[in-house]
């Protein structure tokens, strides 16, 4: 494919002072190919340089955070900045623990995340199963109720929900933090999409064998949906762990306070001076999610980008 078929008279090229358009194009193509091959090497250099820059921009802040969490105040304020701390002593972490009950907050975060994400997935699964497989009148309406909830931003619900939770005496309680965010329109929507793709014959066979809806849900629908459940669970875990606005509004007592709210509390206690201590707390908040992300990246990404694929 490198030369043109002999239909075009080849010797025409050097002799004719004004070569035809066809020949012109062949020549251009040949040159382009040669140029592309020559360009490939500097092009690679450019691409790798840009990629290295991206890697640095993305990773240095996180590395800097972890390194700073081990630095003594003198090292943080030293004028030519030093990269590595003199020692990897846990002084800053100890200071975090003496300023705020960080252990308790870690426990709160784990508890709120586990309960919140777990219940969210169960509620979403059960609701999606009913929406797909249980035949009742007004099922479409129920689905529209779930779907439209996707369009209501959580932010506009904060004031009425706050007055309700305060009225119930649920401020500073786990249920006050967890329950208002439990209903999951997004998870239900994804599970419904997935259930509709399941082979109906399997569930019909189970039904013929006398399996009731609950049994069909737990023994058939759930085992056939493990990747989707994993994706929704991971998205919920990340969401619950990072959730800030709602817990910040309903909690001012460290006993039930989750980590991100504790972080802004620490910021107020320590001020914007003691960066080693602040970075130690920041590391504690980010590290668990970072580890989950690195280990289960594929599933988590699948969940976070699911909206793009279906939308």
């Amino acid at each position: 494919m490198l030369t043109r078929p002999s239909g075009t008279p080849a010797p025409a090229t050097p002799n004719v002072p004004n070569p035809g358009a066809v020949l012109d194009r062949t020549e251009i193509r040949r040159r382009q190919r040669r140029r592309a091959r020559l360009r490939r090497i500097p092009m690679d250099v450019v691409l790798y340089t840009v990629m290295a820059a991206v890697v640095l921009v993305m990773s240095v802040p996180l590395i800097w955070m972890v390194l700073a969490s081990f630095k003594a105040p003198g090292e943080i304020y030293s004028v030519p900045l030093t990269w590595l701390p003199e020692s990897f002593a846990l002084t800053n972490y100890r200071e975090v623990a003496s300023a705020i009950p960080i252990g308790r907050m870690f426990f709160n975060s784990v508890l709120i995340t586990t309960l919140g994400a777990g219940l969210k997935v169960i509620l979403g699964l059960a609701c999606a199963y009913a929406l797909v497989f249980v035949d009742v009148p007004l099922k479409k309406t129920a689905f529209v109720v779930v779907l439209f909830a996707l369009l209501i931003p959580g932010q506009i619900t904060i004031i009425p929900n706050y007055t309700l939770i305060a009225g119930l005496g649920w401020l500073n309680t786990y249920q006050g933090i967890i329950i208002p965010g439990l209903a999951s329109a997004f998870g239900t929507f994804l599970f419904r999409q997935h259930f509709r793709s399941l082979p109906v014959s399997v569930l019909e066979a189970a039904e013929l064998d006398g399996a009731g809806h609950l049994r069909r849900l737990w023994r058939f629908a759930v085992p056939m949906s493990v990747p989707t459940i994993a994706a929704v669970s991971l998205v919920s875990i990340v969401g619950e762990w990072n959730e800030y606005l709602w817990p910040m509004l309903v909690v001012d007592n460290p006993t039930t306070m989750p980590l991100p709210v504790g972080l802004t509390l620490l910021q107020r206690v320590e001020g914007l001076q003691n960066w080693g201590v602040l970075m130690a707390a920041t590391t504690l908040v980010t590290l668990p999610i970072l580890v989950i992300f690195l280990v289960l990246q594929r599933r988590l990404v699948a969940g976070l980008t699911a909206g793009a694929v279906t939308g």
Binding site: C127, A130, V134, V145, V146, T157, P160, N161, A183
Partner: peptide, 24 residues
């Protein structure tokens, strides 16, 4: 069965998403 499976999720949406939207 439908109420048992879908009820809790939809009830929570009504109480914590729709009710506040209207109240707002």
């Amino acid at each position: 069965v439908f109420l048992m499976l879908a009820g809790p999720n939809i009830a929570l949406l009504l109480v914590f998403t729709y009710r506040p939207m209207i109240l707002s």
